[in-house]
Each structure stands twice: as C-alpha cells, then as structure tokens.
Design a binder for these strands. Structure first.
Length: 281
DNA sequence: AGCACA
C-alpha cells in the first residue's frame, strides 16, 4: 500500500506538528490515572485491589462525585511509565461481569498532590454525595484506622480507610504548581550519542527483570510504535524499538530518556538511535 | 558502555 503522506528525507527536518499527540501534550509528567466507568457501589478496596499489583503503584483514591451516583477513582504511580503500563493493561477491562461495567482509564489531568502517609492506608475515600443535609461530614473519620473490619479476607496492612477532608482538594483539574513539565527541552538537533537518526531505538540500562511486555506497554502510547525486541546480553537486557518514522522515534527517545521503569534496579533507561533499522518481520 | 534480527 502506498502511504498517503510523503516527506523528503532530511536529517535536519523538524518535527511536523502532526506528530504530536492529538489533544496536546506528551503528558510525560503525569503519574496519576483517572478511572471512570465504575459502578456506584464500588468500594475503595476494590480499586486498590485492582491497582496494587501493578508495578510502580503508589496509592489510589475513590471519589464519589456529587453528580448522580457517578464514582471515579485516581491511581497514583511512582512514575509516568508505570502509570502508562497500568493504563494499558487495565483500560477496557470488565469490572463487574454482572452489570457489564467496564473500566475506562486515562491519564489524569494532573497528579494527585497527596502523598501517602507512611504506615497508613494505601487508599482513600472522598465522598461528596448529597446524602443528608444534616450529615455534612460524611466519611470524615479520624486519620487513624477507623474501620478495621473492612474486609477480613484482605486484612493486610493496607486496608484502612482514611476519610480526611484535606484530600477533597485534590481534584483532577487545576493544580498548576504540580502540573510538572519539562517536556521537550532539547533542540531539534539530531545527534544523540553520535549516532545518526534511525527509526529504531536502542534501549539500554534496563533492569535484569525488565520484561518485553512492560516496556511495550510504555512504548505503545506513542504514535508510530511498531515492534519491540528485547535481547539479554551478559545479564543486562537491551531492547530495540522500531517506529514508523524517525521523528516518532526521536520523540520517544526524548520523552523516555532516563526514565526509570518499575522493574529497574539501576538508573533510568538509556536510549539512542539504533545503528541499523530493525528488519522487517 | 552495552546494538539483534536477516
């Protein structure tokens, strides 16, 4: 098939605006997921149990919005790639087979500003529902374990509600001081490690336990991503990621350079252009 | 610094 677009090869060619994500930024500073599509009787514990096994998970909170019985949740990870990986693996998953409800997950518009208190519960409930006018303080219990018998079968250390009102401020929107960017502060120069631009990337400094799947989920958020191959070499895995266009590979290199995967025990990933393009499958 | 697959 012939591609509809054609652009001349030029090593100094600048990224076309069309290469940017539709809708704006490369939200590479966002570590928080916004979860909707939840049944109105969902429990924070259920949200927590879904996310807790995901690599890089930090904490989550369930929020009963005031509108209808709409319930949403926020899940916070230690870094952006972890959040993206969880997003990809959980988005669209059937949450309740009975009601047929399906998880809808997207990146939150800003990170949850709340840090989990050490030693306290890994999830939080915010209830803004209009129950009774007289009961304005809803879930506001003390910030200790207020309900130890929440779930006897899951009585690990992380099953304590803490309804505190300071959480109520962490909305999905409006948090400019935390919006975090530093997106692309590289020029259009095309000399990464001396290698010439290539639509295949070479990724090194991965942890020994990095899996192809983990990395793939991170990469697949970027347009043009094609194929990932991981190859272990002397104990240290390296990866090759192939993209449709050089410009797309460049974007990914810029955005993920030095970011640390949850599986990593070393520093962040080191990404360069591969010396040769990945062969066609 | 470490770059494979055909």
């Amino acid at each position: 098939m012939s591609h509809g677009h054609h652009q001349p090869y030029d090593p100094y060619y600048q990224l076309p605006p069309a290469a940017a994500a539709p809708g704006g930024e490369w939200n590479s500073g966002i570590n928080t997921l916004f979860v909707s599509g939840l049944p109105d009787d969902v429990k924070a514990r259920e949200i927590h149990n879904i996310f807790r096994r995901r690599p890089g998970f930090d904490s989550c909170q369930l929020k009963y919005t005031g509108r209808g019985n709409q319930v949403v949740a926020f899940a916070t990870f230690f870094n952006h790639p972890s959040a993206i990986a969880a997003l990809h693996s959980l988005n669209g998953v059937k949450f309740d087979p009975q009601s047929g409800s399906t998880l809808h997950i997207e990146l939150a518009r800003s990170n949850s500003r709340r840090k989990r208190k050490p030693g306290s519960g890994a999830y939080v409930v915010i209830d803004k529902r209009t129950r009774k006018p007289s009961d304005a303080h809803e879930t506001s219990s003390d910030d200790g374990e207020s309900d130890p018998e929440e779930d006897p079968e899951m009585n690990n250390a992380d099953t304590a509600y803490q309804g505190d009102s300071e959480n109520a401020k962490s909305e999905a929107a409006s948090d400019p001081d935390n919006a975090a960017v530093a997106v692309n502060e590289i020029g259009e120069r095309t000399a990464e490690g001396g290698a010439r631009p290539c639509s295949t990337l070479f990724i090194a400094n991965l942890g020994p336990n990095c899996t192809e799947d983990e990395l793939k989920q991170v990469l697949s958020q970027y347009p043009g991503f094609h194929v990932l191959k991981i190859r272990a070499k002397g104990g240290m895995p390296v990866a090759f990621a192939d993209f449709e266009e050089i410009e797309q590979a460049t974007k990914v290199m810029e955005n993920l350079q030095d970011t640390t995967l949850p599986s990593s025990d070393r520093g962040g990933m080191h990404i360069e252009y591969a010396r040769s393009k990945m062969r066609k499958p």
